[in-house]
Amino acid sequence: MTALVGLVRDDLEACNRLIIARMQSPVQLIPQLAAHLIAAGGKRLRPLLTLAAARLCGYRGERHVGLAACVEFIHTATLLHDDVVDESDLRRGQASANAVFGNQASVLVGDFLFARAFQLMVADGSLEVLDILCSAAATIAEGEVLQLVIQNDTTSTEAQYLDVIEGKTAALFAAATRVGAVVAERPKAEAEALDSYGRNLGIAFQLVDDALDYSAAQEKLGKTVGDDFREGKITLPVLLAFERGDETEKTFWRRVLEERDQKDGDLAEALILMGRHRAIEDTIVRARHYGDRAIAALSAFGACPEKAALTGVVEFCIARAR
């Protein structure tokens, strides 16, 4: 990540200035709430991908800065909405916006940030860019709704789970990188390669996130262990442990996830079962598979610092599990 930030530092600073300017409003609660979320940290990974993808494609204009800000607004809006849906009290180790300002304000400021994103798309003036980013926003919403549909259902399949993370996470990664090729007016093959890179990176990123929820490494990131468990989310570690367990273990998973009858010690038991069936390790193996696919997609481009940095992002995302 350090190499990537160094390559696009000036562009990232311009993007940050634009983000701050566009989140201003005479309604003071809006910039206050948005600033609270931004102050909680975050690596600006998605806008960094847009900036780096444009540079990789040889773009030297300024359109990618506005589109990177647009990508970050879409991401931030979804975070605000997600925390309300999940009833989360923490975001990156700090009180979530909904915990501080309430659910109603969080939802409405999320809507405001979506609107700002659409304004930036319109200002860019490209119908192709508008189509890519609007489609991603719709797909994110579909992924979140599908997650609600399969939540607490232990009969959910790995295919359904992958549909969820392709929608709620990977779609924006793919759009963020694809628009870099579009603004540079590169051939469709390069746009498709960057789309594949972003999509596979996004899947790997979410797989690691879902593994981390049951890992001690989560605490190092300032997050609590077991949030997904408490919410009854069906993620790959749960699916693997359930599929590989005996009937007694399956009964346990149905009780804690489907019936939401959770008692003291149940999270510890879940961790034991996951360890017994290598659910965390095998989830990371899957993440590595998608990470390798992301790196392979970059073969469409010649050797350069941007390509090396984007490869490094894949390694960084997977290394979080250590």
Score class of each variant (00 low, 15 high):
120 L>A: 14
202 G>E: 01
108 L>I: 05
170 A>Q: 01
130 L>D: 08
164 V>N: 09
177 T>C: 15
116 R>G: 02
203 I>A: 02
132 I>P: 00
121 M>F: 07
133 L>K: 05
188 K>Q: 14
156 S>Q: 08
199 R>K: 14
162 L>G: 01
187 P>I: 04
131 D>V: 06
117 A>E: 07
136 A>K: 03
202 G>A: 03
175 A>T: 04
194 L>F: 01
194 L>Y: 02
128 E>C: 00
147 Q>P: 15
111 D>M: 07
136 A>N: 04
188 K>R: 12
135 S>F: 00
126 S>W: 11
109 V>Q: 07
183 V>W: 02
136 A>P: 08
122 V>A: 13
110 G>F: 12
135 S>W: 00
141 A>T: 10
149 V>P: 00
127 L>M: 11
127 L>R: 02
200 N>K: 07
137 A>E: 03
180 G>P: 12
152 N>L: 00
170 A>D: 00
114 F>E: 04
177 T>E: 02
149 V>T: 13
118 F>N: 06
174 A>N: 05
156 S>I: 05
144 E>D: 05
202 G>Y: 00
191 A>I: 03
139 T>E: 15
165 I>C: 12
169 T>F: 11
178 R>S: 13
195 D>Q: 10
108 L>M: 15
131 D>F: 08
182 V>I: 11
139 T>R: 14
188 K>S: 14
140 I>T: 06
148 L>V: 15
110 G>H: 08
128 E>G: 01
110 G>Y: 12
132 I>D: 11
185 E>I: 00
188 K>P: 01
165 I>M: 04
165 I>W: 06
123 A>L: 05
108 L>P: 06
159 A>G: 06
118 F>T: 12
148 L>H: 04
115 A>G: 11
118 F>M: 13
124 D>H: 08
201 L>C: 03
185 E>M: 09
190 E>I: 02
182 V>S: 00
199 R>E: 08
186 R>D: 05
171 A>K: 10
159 A>K: 14
178 R>C: 08
117 A>Q: 06
115 A>T: 15
183 V>I: 05
122 V>M: 07
180 G>Y: 01
190 E>N: 06
194 L>H: 05
186 R>P: 01
202 G>N: 03
150 I>V: 15
117 A>G: 15
169 T>S: 14
195 D>M: 03
112 F>A: 00
149 V>I: 12
148 L>W: 02
154 T>W: 01
143 G>R: 09
146 L>G: 08
128 E>L: 10
136 A>I: 09
180 G>D: 04
115 A>S: 14
155 T>R: 12
185 E>A: 15
196 S>A: 15
177 T>L: 13
202 G>V: 06
168 K>I: 13
177 T>K: 02
132 I>S: 11
160 Q>P: 10
150 I>S: 11
113 L>Q: 10
202 G>K: 06
141 A>P: 01
132 I>C: 14
108 L>F: 13
187 P>D: 09
187 P>A: 12
145 V>N: 05
181 A>E: 03
198 G>Q: 08
116 R>L: 02
184 A>L: 03
142 E>P: 02
174 A>W: 09
120 L>C: 12
162 L>W: 02
108 L>E: 09
160 Q>S: 13
183 V>K: 03
134 C>K: 05
140 I>L: 15
165 I>V: 08
114 F>I: 14
157 T>P: 12
149 V>C: 08
195 D>P: 00
203 I>Q: 04
181 A>V: 09
163 D>L: 09
172 L>G: 11
